[in-house]
Nucleic acid binder design. Structure first.
Lengths: 166, 166
DNA sequence: AATTTACGTCAGCCTTGTTGACTTTCCAAG
DNA sequence: CTTGGAAAGTCAACAAGGCTGACGTAAATT
């Protein structure tokens, strides 16, 4: 049924050893992936959690807190702590919803956008170098495998740019 | 061959939007990547840090503490806390080096190997499903891009199975 | 003999996650 | 109009897992 035993050529890319290499590749690559933003953030009062919030507010300006909660997959208390400091420091603006005044819509301020740019420039530079070194076909495969690795719910978050706002 | 600046069609895979998608793909995929082991570990007294130690001890039986330190990229105090609990709980054995008695060589016990298997079975199952869904060519690209994304030093760790031991 | 290396440990701090309890605001259904 | 409940915010307490600094010990190296 799941086969794996197709006789013949035999799916070498599915051996335990190949899978282990894939696992370690994810581990080491993720370190590289976060290294540059981490370096920028260290010293400032911020960490990765702030980076993530800034990233997704940038991607979806006007997103609500609960929207962000479901994307980031943390508790509101945890997110709130991060958001509060960003708002206090004037990087993020929180506007009361017009239609539903319970909701808060989040936007980067000019200052917030500036930090976002610094962070994503660094991260994109690494990604660009990796893409360039690997070539378009490899990039295609990279994206395909990553997508298949996501939880279905997260895959929807990833694909769906639908963030409603209001 | 890999061209680069072929004018004309113009490297669509290097646009900022493509790079942003790649960044988010890493973010969401990594969540999936760690989800299954995290589920197994929750409830036990262990976390991701224990998983990582167990993984690399399994990969390189007899590896030393400082070896592990350089692979994991944490401080010895941090690693020691993890290692101590694993040794106390009888998952890891720490043997004094024969040649150099300052060194401690780390091995999984039967019990440790059992947990390792549970964790890596879960992680491999997801990886296998992703690989199978994506196909061999995509897997090749996936590995190529991840490798290009690593810091050079980590890439050496990743590639070099040389862990000496003693 | 002196120094360096490998390891362990104590103490304290930070970030970022968690629960639980509680309040305020406000939409929407009865 | 009243009320139930969703959305958001807040306080408090806690844990995991990073970090630094300081110190100790045994063994190897110089």
């Amino acid at each position: 049924m799941v086969d794996g035993t197709t006789g013949g050529e035999g799916l070498l890319f599915l051996t335990d050893e190949q899978l282990r290499k894939g696992i370690e590749a994810m581990f080491f690559a993720y370190r590289g992936f976060t290294a540059d933003p981490d370096r920028i953030l260290e010293g400032m009062d911020y960490g990765r959690a702030h980076h993530r919030a800034i990233h997704f507010i940038h991607r979806s300006p006007g997103t609500t807190v609960s929207n962000l909660l479901s994307i980031l997959g943390v508790t509101k208390q945890s997110l709130n702590r991060v958001l509060r400091s960003l708002v206090e420091d004037g990087l993020v603006e929180s506007r009361v919803g017009k239609q539903d005044k319970r909701e808060r819509h989040l936007y980067l301020t000019a200052k917030g956008a500036e930090l976002e740019r610094a962070l994503s420039d660094a991260q994109r530079a690494r990604m660009r170098a990796a893409y360039r070194a690997a070539g378009p076909a490899a990039v295609q495969g990279f994206r395909t495998v990553l997508e298949a690795m996501m939880d279905p719910e997260l895959r929807r978050q990833y694909q769906g740019l639908r963030d409603g706002n209001a």
